[in-house]
């Protein structure tokens, strides 16, 4: 695979629930966890998705239905042709003693990161936060992993709470060496805030999302205000150092026109 368009047949579809599915393609690629691909549904659109797994002969993405494209993607069946380009961007670096923190669909790239950590025989822990049990993909697989702690906001699975809430106790139990997080931006910023309460800080690797059109660093759509860093090239995984100087945290993201909606116009998804 490369940045040039190539189409592949979907090999199989794993249905977690009607609005949350994983898609596997016959394809071998070299990709770091946290890197993403552009997925083209002919006749519809092309959007970025993280790899949720890379296997001997297959790659996998996991899609949550949130809007027009992702809802249409739920109809994709084995045998359908889909365009894939990538992998793009900078991913996570697996490190011994890492704690993974995922919110909702943000856990997709962490699944691949966990796979890499296991293959490299590095010890890690993984906190998965979901709104409700329905939002959890790969439930059986996760149930068999001793590294995993699941929490939900409505206590339908695991303890009640948010992923960030359990970090302090985890650190007391055994110090966190580095934090890797993926999920809604408020969660990422909370993880960063938690890491900064220590001296020295706990290093962080945080995976961000911005509207993307090219993924090759040219259209400027995904640039962060304050530093001009491109989430598609220098990101999506950024270090605490790369977060410094960015002035747009907590503000609505620029949309497809490049305009940043006012707080009121912004539609929130997570």
């Amino acid at each position: 695979m490369s940045e040039y368009m190539q189409t592949y047949q979907v090999k199989r579809v794993l249905t977690h629930n009607e609005g949350l599915k994983s898609f596997r393609f016959d394809r071998v690629i070299e990709a770091a966890p946290g890197q993403f691909v552009l997925v083209w549904l002919p006749g519809a659109d092309e959007k970025p998705f993280a790899l949720s797994g890379v296997f001997d002969h297959e790659i996998e993405i996991t899609v949550k239905a949130v809007g027009p494209f992702t809802k249409q993607f739920m109809n994709v069946k084995a045998g359908d042709w889909v365009g894939l380009r990538g992998p793009f961007g900078n991913g996570f670096q697996p490190i011994e003693g890492m704690v993974l923190v995922g919110g909702g669909i943000g856990n997709a790239p962490l699944r691949y990161l966990a796979q890499c950590l296991r293959e490299e025989k590095l010890l890690f822990r993984w906190v998965i936060g979901v709104k409700t049990a329905e939002d959890l993909a790969f439930r059986d697989e996760l149930a068999s992993m001793p590294e995993v702690t699941i929490v939900s906001e409505d206590s339908s699975i695991g303890k009640k709470g948010r992923a960030v809430d359990v970090l302090a106790a985890m650190n007391d139990h055994e110090p966190i060496i580095v934090l890797a997080a993926s999920g809604p931006e408020p969660m990422l910023l909370a993880v960063h805030g938690f890491a900064n309460t220590f001296s020295p800080d706990i290093p962080v690797q945080l995976s961000f999302e911005r509207y993307m059109k090219c993924a090759v660093g040219i259209c400027g759509q995904c640039c962060l205000d304050g530093t001009g860093l491109r989430v598609c090239v220098e990101g999506p995984v950024l270090s605490g150092h790369q977060l410094q100087g960015v002035t747009e945290w907590g503000r609505p993201h620029r949309g497809p026109s490049g305009r940043r909606p006012t707080q009121k116009q912004a539609v929130h998804h997570d």
Binding site: E46, P256, S257
Partner: peptide, 30 residues
């Protein structure tokens, strides 16, 4: 303000790019 065309809108090939962004822009005031 214009949202421009859907994607793929910027497509690398062996010798450069094809682009049809469709004049996406935030509008002159922005």
């Amino acid at each position: 303000e214009r949202k421009g065309h859907p994607c793929p809108a910027i497509l690398p090939f062996g010798f450069g790019l094809l682009n049809a962004v469709g004049l996406a822009n935030p509008g002159v005031d922005e």
